[in-house]
Design a protein around this nucleic acid. Sequence first.
DNA 1: CCGACGAAGTGCGGGGCACGCATCTTTGCG
DNA 2: CGCAAAGATGCGTGCCCCGCACTTCGTCGG
Lengths: 211, 211
Amino acid sequence: MGLRERKKHQTRAALAWAAVRLIVERGYDKVLVEDIAGEAGVSPRTFNNYFSSKAAAVASRHLDRSLRMADGLRARPAGEGLWTAITEAVVAEMTPGPEVTSQPRPDRETWGAGLQQMMAIPAIQAETLRAAAVAEQELAKAVGERVGIDPADDIYPGLVAATVTAACNVASQRYAAARFTGQDDLETSIRELLVDALSQVAAGLPPPGAK
Amino acid sequence: MGLRERKKHQTRAALAWAAVRLIVERGYDKVLVEDIAGEAGVSPRTFNNYFSSKAAAVASRHLDRSLRMADGLRARPAGEGLWTAITEAVVAEMTPGPEVTSQPRPDRETWGAGLQQMMAIPAIQAETLRAAAVAEQELAKAVGERVGIDPADDIYPGLVAATVTAACNVASQRYAAARFTGQDDLETSIRELLVDALSQVAAGLPPPGAK
DNA sequence: CCGACGAAGTGCGGGGCACGCATCTTTGCG
DNA sequence: CGCAAAGATGCGTGCCCCGCACTTCGTCGG
């Protein structure tokens, strides 16, 4: 990869990160495109060469993460069961790294509150969901490869991908909600939430004694 | 319901419908808010009293339909199995009424092409997904009522709702794709697609001989 | 090594859009 | 019949998104 492409990725990442950081700190409508561009050291016009909106910049991180899930799934050993492979690939991407968990507690709470504010903005929700939908296509391909079914021929890979995405959304939502409730021994429990949700959908969600 | 509220609903419906019709006919960026408002016999400013954007107006029909699904589920007989009830409620809302199927064939194809164009616009996709997500909450409540589990206590209702929504999305997507492929003996097969997708997710999507 | 090519960054300008605010009109109710 | 509330409208503003033209700088063939 040449210098050119590397700089491009750097700029993209800088813009996306700046967008998230500033918006979490200040609130969505108190951050101008100008601010984000400035933070990343480029002109405002350039921002829109990378992202079609503020919301898209924020969602791009989610998109990238979701795309890495598909890659992660492809990287799982071939002998592994489908749902085990999926669960591992998902958990690997959804677990916060040390750059988060090593933050001092009060900072993390401030950040979490800001994050919730941000995710409450309709435009952000919409773009985030769209990002998930885009990545879902890629996930469907990866699932198709693993089980040997072309997504174009059979609905199965698409259904698995959609279901996995849905389970992730529910789990994250619940994770965020629990934080608000107060209890936050959740550093590990995001994993548990995901494992639980995925195993339930894999098992087929039977109605009566469902749990 | 007083006259006031009825007029409000009328105006809302007129705006939403005008938005869809004009955009399908002309293309998203060749329709101004002004046009939609004019079509509905209301001032441009009023449009934004009802919808926060063009895309939101379009998605509102999807939102309403999805909300009716939750109501439809509540209306199913109590003895009926959960997934049967869900399937019926979903199919009831997703089946196009006679006002569509009675259109002359060429008109319907033109309309379908325009619809696909519209659904290809990122902003529309995003808002549509968001509408589905909002309605999903309501669906989760309805599921919770039916199985006697509070969505706040247990993840199950949320998972069912999310999974159902996902299955619907996959089915519609596939329905639209098939139309593009040329074969359109699909008037009934949207039903079959839904039944198939829902039964698969209900059964748990086992990997090997999945079909 | 160099020169042309093409991709990325930038500045400018315009068409809309979303919304706050003040005002006018309609509705429902006592 | 008249008034309080809710809705519709008009106006003004700040921002956004993008098209276009121009500059800058990696990249690659000769």
